[in-house]
């Protein structure tokens, strides 16, 4: 009786059903996720005492002033943005032919195999992949022996990150092209368009929102990265390193929080911009 009673109650009350369904994830998203983001923002408005011993909970814009006035932070911010843009562009250029081949040329069997091949690197540890690239770039390494290694530095970082995030660009593009019916390509040819005109007028417009969706991943993941640059980036620092160093070495959590707000603001601006393209419906 009891169980049928509660089942009946659930049946009669759609609000209760909805609450039970959405309660736990809303708690996670609202309290833990957005809550920590708010805590981040609040922390960025605090400071540390002169000895670096503890956090002083007094409201101050000191951290923001430091961030905006010291040249080194502006340089690092621009370097990070440049890296993110380069990684995104490289991934976009590599992913278009790969996704096009997977979605429109390969047989269904090869399609499955290629999806697995694209996904496989995601199963391997990030660190292993980054160190693998360190080996590639090292003096006397495979790339160096054919004279193609740029050595450790920003270029190596960009290549490594572009490799790491490539699946995040290929998969949305593949999904977008999969939804593009073959008959659209045939219709374009039938109406007199050659291969390049079809690419430009039919494939690219369909591909664009998918590319933007992929770029959200490649861009935001690059903005937050600090490990790859440590492994293959030589002496270069990205925003992630500033956060890491302020927090661990400098023991200055409020300043770390301030710096980490930069990627948040950049991503918010980016998301607002791409919302207009309809790319968010493609995620």
């Amino acid at each position: 009786m009891a169980s049928s009673g509660s089942a009946g109650l659930l049946h009669r009350s759609p609000r209760l059903r909805l609450g039970l369904l959405l309660g736990p994830p809303m708690l996670w998203l609202g309290v833990l996720y957005l809550g920590s983001l708010a805590a981040l923002f609040i922390t960025s408005l605090w400071t540390v005492d002169a000895f670096g011993a503890g956090i002083q909970r007094t409201w101050t814009l000191e951290n923001f002033r430091t961030l905006f006035t010291l040249d080194v932070y502006r340089t690092i911010t621009f370097r990070t943005l440049l890296t993110a843009v380069a990684v995104t562009v490289i991934d976009g250029l590599v992913a278009v032919p790969v996704a096009l081949f997977m979605a429109k040329v390969a047989s269904p069997r090869w399609q499955r195999i290629l999806v697995i091949l694209v996904l496989t690197p995601l199963w391997a540890s990030y660190l292993v992949k980054a160190y693998a690239w360190r080996g590639m770039f090292s003096t006397g390494g495979p790339l160096d022996s054919v004279g193609l290694s740029p050595g450790y530095g920003l270029s190596a970082t960009i290549v490594t990150l572009a490799y790491l995030w490539l699946p995040y660009m290929v998969l949305p593009m593949y999904a977008g092209l999969e939804r593009l019916p073959d008959s659209l390509l045939e219709a374009s040819a039938d109406l007199g368009a050659g291969t390049w005109t079809t690419m430009r007028r039919v494939v690219l417009p369909v591909l664009f929102p998918a590319a933007v969706a992929g770029s959200i991943f490649t861009f935001s993941l690059t903005l937050g990265d600090y490990i790859a640059v440590k492994i293959v980036g030589g002496t270069n620092q990205l925003l992630g390193n500033v956060v890491y160093d302020s927090f661990l070495t400098g023991n200055n959590m409020p300043f770390a929080a301030t710096v980490s707000l930069i990627p948040v603001v950049v991503m918010l601006a980016y998301l607002t911009a791409v919302r207009r393209t309809g790319a968010l419906e493609n995620l």
Partner: peptide, 10 residues
């Protein structure tokens, strides 16, 4: 020119 079964409108 062809009229496709699924219309194939862009």
């Amino acid at each position: 020119n062809t009229v496709f079964q699924d219309y194939a409108l862009f």
